[in-house]
Nucleic acid binder design. Structure first.
Length: 664
DNA sequence: TTTAGGG
DNA sequence: CCCTAAA
């Protein structure tokens, strides 16, 4: 399956689509593009644009009903407007209660491509309706994650598909980003994702959009904020290997995990990682970078390593941001439910409450064979979503379609808290420092990714390259940090140095990273099998065996690379390790009775030669090459041949048995 | 990257 | 065939 992310939006900051096309060296540059450009200058890509965030300025002394009513009215209008604009993509869908999914999906039979334009999430309209106005302190808003969505007020709204999450506002009854098993169970195993969408689960799985509470002008981020997809979501997301294909049919993959480590390194993460066996990591890296020895494996490998590596520099930035004097608080839905923190946190002065009702994300193009199972499709979609969400996201605030870059300004200064501007407020989810999730492994063996054709083996593995953020990107991120302090890793359940981290971020992503990571270990086994598909078995033909024996007779048993070059140079699929292994099995085969042998029978004469060569070279271990007397293979051959039969041992001892050559 | 071996 | 420690 191939994930194809289409960015048909006007904004291109993220440049997802560009990456795959350019040579790696160039792609890096592309990736490093600033992503914090003004909205006008095209923001990005994964850029999930908040379609409409509703803010409600509420004064304790004021009657809430008045504002609420006003708000509701506006909300509907806005919503209608949004819907209209989405028409091309999502016209026939309306927010229907709890429908698991109402994707505007088009299916192109000819190409087997699926375009998922939207997902539906739990809809809490009902709840809202039942909510007394007095309790209706949350303003419902909607956030569009679609890169094509600029803003509800933006005329240039471009069709964009995505995942739309409807969050309930009033009681904050959770609004899971992902809901119910059927639609959200990525593996279709039903075991990873809760069947029900209770608050906690939804919160864990979905993007919880918090209510923003302004406290005395300060905003705080509650630790309960949880954007973490957990359970299956995280699991699949973590090692999800996605191969994206842009419109030009070029692919590239990205890996989430590495991003996580890179972007949100924290003691907790370190701890988690530490818990991972070194073997695991090695395995991963190897599988990931593996390919033929002649295909720049090294490059890939190194790249990958560097990405996964801890980047102290970036971490510093993170900490710096955390210490930002500005304080903001975000109350998550679940948190709100359990503690009703929203209202409690409110206090003197104006309080701005915000509820982001929905998200939209860029269209996800998924390509799956028509023979793919539904479960596979689910998984694929899930992976795409997971990658999208966990790739590292930053939040941006838009007012009248323009990005508000000065994080130091107060809401009132920015005008956000003005009723008139409520409809002009928007949020964007932009690529975080990591930008592009980097695939670590192939989630689905069925994913046809050998476009790069690195090797047989790599065919089942993702092609790592452009999706990886580079130093450039990091630097870039740093710049962004300087100018936009809108991304702050926030540790909810794992706060380390600063339990009550200060943050300006509306949406703390770190927790997501952390939780996701925590699940990694659990996937080790299953992952491995999926990510590194075993090469197809290709039995040696008699001809090959003969060639091998011939080469070994001439070169000995310790020069597999030479053997490879001499006799199998044109057999791409035969590595020197393969040859060595084959020789090993040949020796074994020759040493057992014919009845015990399996597979295509090897002529006895060949086996005899094997034993002779084996014996001979056992006696002359590397003598020839060691003395450098015969750099030229032919010389060795000559010697061996010259010696004739006599050069071979008459007796070959293998496994305690003595084999006598019939020809002796 | 190769080699050498165990799995 | 795979995985790796060593070199």
């Amino acid at each position: 399956m191939v994930f194809k992310r289409k960015f048909d939006c006007l904004s291109v900051g993220f440049d997802f689509p560009n990456i795959p096309r350019a040579p790696r060296s160039c792609r890096r540059k592309v990736l490093s593009k600033k992503i914090d450009d003004d909205y006008d200058t095209k923001i990005c890509a994964i850029d999930l644009l908040a379609l409409a965030g509703k803010l409600l300025q509420e004064k304790e002394s004021e009657s809430s009903s008045a504002s609420s009513n006003a708000f509701e009215g506006n909300n509907h209008d806005v919503k209608q407007e949004q819907d209209d604009k989405r028409k091309p993509v999502k016209s026939e869908f309306s927010d229907q209660g709890n429908s698991v999914s109402r994707p505007i999906t088009t299916y192109d039979n000819s190409t087997d491509k699926c375009v998922v334009n939207s997902f539906s999430f739990p809809d809490n309209d009902g709840v809202l309706e039942r909510t007394p106005m007095s309790d209706y302190k949350m303003i419902h808003g909607s956030m569009d994650l679609g890169c094509g969505t600029k803003n509800a007020n933006c005329d240039s709204y471009v069709k964009s598909g995505g995942i739309t999450g409807e969050t309930g506002g009033v009681n904050n009854v959770n609004t899971g980003f992902i809901k119910q098993g059927e639609a959200t169970d990525p593996l279709g195993d039903g075991g990873l994702i809760p069947e029900t969408c209770n608050l906690e689960e939804a919160t864990a799985l979905g993007v919880q959009f918090p209510k923003l509470v302004r406290v005395g002008g300060d905003l705080k981020l509650p630790s309960s904020m949880d954007m973490t997809p957990n359970g299956s979501f995280a699991r699949h997301g973590n090692h999800t290997n996605l191969v994206r294909k842009d419109d030009d049919e070029k692919f590239f993959s990205y890996h989430k995990l590495s991003n996580k480590f890179k972007s949100y390194r924290s003691p907790s993460i370190r701890r988690i990682r530490k818990s991972l066996s070194s073997k695991y990591w090695k395995q991963v890296s190897k599988d990931f970078g593996h390919s033929r020895a002649d295909v720049g494996v090294k490059t890939l490998y190194r790249k990958r390593k560097s990405y996964c590596g801890y980047n102290p520099w970036q971490r510093d930035i993170i900490y710096k941001r955390r210490r930002s004097p500005d304080r903001s608080s975000v109350v998550t839905s679940d948190g709100g439910l359990s503690s009703g923190s929203v209202s409690k946190l409110s206090k003197k002065g104006d309080t701005v409450k915000l509820s982001i009702k929905s998200f939209r994300i860029p269209e996800l193009f998924i390509e799956v064979p028509d023979t793919a199972s539904v479960g596979s499709l689910k998984r694929t979609v899930m992976e795409a979503v997971g990658v999208l969400l966990s790739g590292g996201i930053r939040v941006g605030v838009l007012m009248h379609g323009k990005k508000v870059r000065d994080d130091r300004k107060t809401l009132s200064q920015t005008g956000i808290s003005c009723d008139e501007n409520l409809d002009n407020l928007g949020f964007t989810l932009e690529p975080g420092p990591g930008k592009v999730p980097l695939p670590l492994c192939s989630e689905d063996p069925a994913v046809p990714t050998d476009l790069t054709n690195l090797s047989e083996r790599s065919a089942a593995s993702p092609t790592l390259d452009s999706g990886v953020p580079h130093a450039d990107d990091v630097i870039n991120s740093g710049n962004i940090v300087e100018s936009n302090l809108d991304l702050v890793p926030y540790q909810s359940d794992i706060s380390v140095d600063e339990p009550s981290s200060d943050s300006k971020a509306l949406v703390p992503l770190p927790s997501l990273e952390v939780k996701a990571l925590a699940i990694v270990p659990l996937n080790q086994k299953p992952k491995r099998s999926e990510l590194a598909q075993r090469r197809t078995r290709r039995p040696f033909s008699v001809t090959e065996v003969e060639a091998l024996v011939q080469a070994v007779e001439e070169l000995g048993t310790g020069r597999w690379r030479d053997v490879k070059l001499r006799a199998f140079e044109n057999s791409e699929h035969r590595t020197y390790v393969d040859l060595k292994d084959k020789w090993k099995t040949l020796v074994h085969t020759a040493s057992i009775s014919p009845q015990q042998r399996r597979g295509e029978p090897v002529p006895q004469d060949l086996l005899d030669r094997v034993l002779r060569a084996y014996g001979y070279w056992s006696q002359h271990q590397g003598k020839h090459q060691a003395r450098g007397a015969s750099k030229d293979p032919d010389m060795n051959r000559g010697r061996a041949l010259e010696s004739g039969v006599s050069v071979y041992k008459k007796e070959v001892r293998i496994g305690g048995w003595v084999y006598r050559s019939k020809q002796q």
